[in-house]
Design a protein around this nucleic acid. Structure first.
Length: 833
DNA sequence: CAGTGAGCGAGCTTCCGCTTGACTT
């Protein structure tokens, strides 16, 4: 019924991404109109009854409000079109999007053309259009099973957590396993016992004074053994007894997928996972790279040709080697290409900011290197005998290994970085050596080396692990990491290490010296730490839903989704098998599980004899002295790095030693404590936040004075101008100039912000008056109101805190009674059942 | 900003996967 004026469209082709639509539009002529669905267009309703469980798990779908506009647009286009082509991604989700499109646009799923391509090139698209197929309903149903399963799991377990742990929490097939990985790694670290060995290194040189380093094959457990060994080495002769030369090669890594890009950008550029994705999105939208959410390592023919050309012109033909990469990732769907530049002609792109440019360069190098020749390496291992003056003694041998790159190949362009758990042997170039050659000792050291605990996850190594387990998809890695932090299961933090002494024994010029050196150990930068909440929720889920948080749960259900997509299993049959036992467990847990607070009794307070208890409070982990019945119980929050399950009685008691008085400075007292916003020191009426380096429990008066002076200096540096004889000074802030008066900070109008030099005292006076009258000083008004309320209360004596306390104890009494009542009621309930 | 942590109880929270803007600060 289209209006005669509206031009009809011959062909409407629908893809998921608008950027893709634009590119494809250029490839196809005027006969084609290309539109984007912007991802899924329908979903289960956000709340309410989304799945009819009793009648075969039939899902109800709605167009979410943020999609109504796109859907309306597509409807309009579809009505005008003679023919519609569904060209969403070729994977489970893409097939489902196409099916939803048929439903919303009123198309016949039996006859509508469905086409797929894995690369956005003219040839690939024309080929796809020549070979349309029908919708694959088995694949659509596999997606539906995935969707419904995730909803059932997430929306049945999450409310249990609200009830048994804390409101607003969440659980799910992906996020709960991600948290579990971090929690279990932390427990490994807690249980890790560091041991040490003495490692011997020798610095030798040849007759011609060329130095080389060698290591002793054997390590010693105690310093006494190392000392004995070094003693035997005094005056010894060093002789090359064996030489082994082995050729080797290194091959380039595959082109980037989402996961490997995130990892490498974190290692080489220090980007967070979210940051990498933001930058890549921008590069993609501006046409510089292919799609950035992919699990495929494949390159298009066209890209391969361009890369070959690039290598041959820039490095020469002997640097080129054609390679085809295959994915090693479980559940890879490979709907797109690998992440690669769209144009290889330049590595610098004008108009990019420096962060984008760096990421682009990384992608460019990795992609080109993936088609370059192997690096040829020659590895030399020299065995060096130590011949002591006392010939009756035999000593272990030294080994010097060296590496020479004979042909650099892809290494000319790209070297992959390593994670901290992967050992990187330091390679040296060895001088030419001969068997029986004598070497001379400069120095030999035996150094005490401690074993390291397994590394904590970074965002990027967590993504790597999830991918290995087949959990999550390229489009969800970044959001998952953000969710588990938003729920406060996990925090991303840097923590200072501690100093540790280690022994070094040195033999030099026939003399042995022994010294103690210091190293910093345990320094962590941007690592994922579990919170107590994350640990308690993980323990809860492991106890009641072991199968769901099992590392192989996703892999198992993926096998069944595969069965569905091959037509060997009905989608709702799968759910019929899964759901009843799962739901039963949910109900049982709701009935039987205790509330989780992670409560531990640490012992008795030596001063009062009251019990000291650690548990999770409303605002986080705490310790309390005195049980719940105690009306004078005291509370203290745990410090960062402390955990409910490991805190000791001594540590807990130390938390109550606040606020600490640190004496006076310039006639005003200094106090250290912890407030709502973290640790601070107060000097007179001036508060200064303490950084992570200083703890209010250990800070000394001297350190506190340093902090005060440093703060004063920093404040002084911020001053642009002081109006003598007035309370006003102009300050330099993060966002420009601002006005400071009697402890108030006052924003400046834009014009003044830009030229603070022109401001007069009168301006200041006016601004300050406006400030005091404006609703911005509401906060002050609020505190005033509170005070008023208190003073108006009937038994008004002047001590407001005393009044508050009386009120508190009253309500406490009442609630204690009611809570015991409630408990009794509950018991009765359970008994009935 | 800087000394909370209980509990009453309405109405709310929550999953995974596919996509971008349209909004402040």
């Amino acid at each position: 019924m289209s209006n005669e004026n509206t031009p009809t469209i011959k062909n409407l082709l629908i893809v998921e991404s608008p950027t893709k639509a634009k590119t494809i539009g250029k490839f196809l002529g005027k006969d084609f109109s290309v539109a984007a669905s912007m991802g899924h267009i329908r979903d289960l309703p956000k709340n309410g009854k989304a799945v009819d469980i009793e009648n075969g798990f039939i899902p109800q779908y709605v167009v979410p409000p943020e999609k109504t506009k796109v859907v309306a647009e597509l409807k309009k286009l579809a009505q005008q079109a003679e023919k519609v082509w569904l060209a969403t991604d070729e994977d489970r989700e893409g097939e489902a999007i196409s099916w939803h499109l048929t439903q919303v646009l009123g198309l016949d799923p039996e006859t509508t053309n469905r086409i797929v391509f894995h690369e956005i090139t003219q040839a690939a698209i024309q080929k796809a259009i020549a070979q349309p197929r029908k919708l694959d309903m088995d694949l659509v149903e596999a997606q539906q099973a995935r969707r419904v399963l995730d909803r059932l799991v997430g929306f049945e377990i999450s409310p249990l957590l609200w009830k048994k742990v804390k409101a607003g929490l969440s659980a799910g097939r992906v996020q709960s396993v991600a948290v579990r990985l971090i929690v279990e790694r932390e427990r490994e670290i807690m249980n890790f016992k560091s041991t040490y060995q003495f490692k011997v290194q020798a610095e030798l040189f040849t007759e011609n004074n060329i130095p080389l380093k060698a290591e002793l094959k054997e390590k010693f457990n105690e310093s006494s053994e190392a000392l004995t060994f070094l003693n035997h080495c005094i005056g010894a002769t060093y002789k090359v007894v064996n030489l082994e030369v082995k050729p080797g090669k290194r091959t380039p890594p595959a082109p980037f997928t989402t996961s490997t890009l995130q990892q490498e950008a974190a290692r080489k550029l220090g980007y967070s996972v979210a940051q990498t994705m933001r930058l890549a999105q921008s590069l993609y939208e501006n046409g510089h790279i292919t799609y950035m959410r992919t699990d495929s390592v494949t390159l298009s023919e066209q890209a391969l040709d361009a890369i070959a050309q690039t290598i041959k012109t820039n490095f020469g033909a002997h640097y080129y080697q054609h390679r085809i990469y295959k994915t090693k990732v479980a559940n890879a769907q490979e709907a797109h290409e690998a992440i690669r530049p769209t144009d290889f002609s330049q590595i610098q792109i004008p108009g990019l900011d420096s962060a984008e440019q760096k990421l682009y360069e990384l992608i460019w190098k990795r992609t080109v290197a993936s088609q370059m020749a192997d690096a040829q390496i020659e590895k030399t291992i020299a065995t060096i005998a130590i011949l002591p003056t006392n010939q009756e003694i035999t000593l272990p041998q030294l080994v010097a290994s060296g590496e020479v790159i004979k042909f650099d190949g892809f290494l000319k362009l790209y070297i992959e970085s390593k994670d901290e758990d992967e050992e990187d042997a330091d390679s040296q170039a060895l001088p030419p050596l001969l068997i029986n050659q004598i070497l001379y000792l400069k120095k030999m050291t035996a150094t005490q080396r401690f074993t390291k605990h397994p590394p904590r996850y970074t965002e990027a190594t967590l993504v790597k692990k999830l991918e290995e387990l087949g959990i999550g998809r390229p489009s969800t890695y970044a959001p998952t990491i953000s969710t588990i932090q938003k729920r406060q299961y996990v925090v991303k933090e840097s923590r200072e290490g501690v100093k540790r002494a280690y022994q070094v024994l040195t033999l030099e010029r026939d003399k042995i010296t022994q010294e103690e050196k210091y190293e910093t150990t345990g320094t962590e930068k941007n690592k994922l730490f579990p919170t107590d909440l994350g640990m308690l929720v993980t323990d809860f889920l492991k106890l009641y839903f072991a199968d769901i948080v099992d590392y192989s749960f996703t892999a198992k259900v993926e096998e069944e989704f595969d069965e569905i997509s091959h037509g060997r299993l009905k989608w709702n049959q799968m759910l019929k098998n899964f759901y009843p036992p799962f739901h039963q467990k949910v109900e049982e847990t709701e009935q039987n599980a205790e509330r989780v607070a992670g409560e531990r009794i640490l012992g008795a307070d030596p001063k009062t004899g009251k019990p000291v208890i650690a548990r999770l409070g409303k605002y986080g982990p705490l310790v309390q002295i005195g049980d719940s019945e105690d009306q004078d119980k005291k509370f203290a929050s745990l410090l960062p790095g402390q955990h409910l399950e490991t805190i000791t009685l001594e540590e807990a008691l130390a938390l109550f030693e606040l606020p600490r008085k640190l004496g006076t400075f310039e006639d005003q007292e200094i106090v250290a404590s912890i407030g709502r916003f973290g640790p601070y020191i107060r000097h007179g009426d001036k508060f200064i936040s303490l950084g992570k380096e200083l703890s209010p429990y250990t800070i000394t008066q001297e350190q506190a004075i340093e902090v005060i002076l440093a703060k004063r200096k920093a404040d002084a540096e911020k001053v642009i101008r002081v109006f003598e004889g007035t309370p006003f000074s102009l300050m330099k802030g993060r966002w420009g100039a601002y006005l400071s008066a009697e402890g108030n900070t006052i924003a400046l109008p834009k014009a003044m912000k830009q030229n603070p030099e022109t401001i007069t005292v009168e301006d200041c006076q006016k601004l300050y008056e406006e400030y005091l009258a404006s609703p911005k000083s509401k906060r002050k008004a609020k505190t005033v109101n509170k005070k008023e309320e208190i003073s108006q209360s009937p038994s008004a004596d002047n001590s407001s805190s005393g009044e508050a306390k009386v009120k508190k104890t009253k309500t406490k009494k009442a609630t204690n009674n009611s809570s015991t009542e409630n408990q009794e009621k509950k018991k009765a309930k359970n008994a009935k059942k």
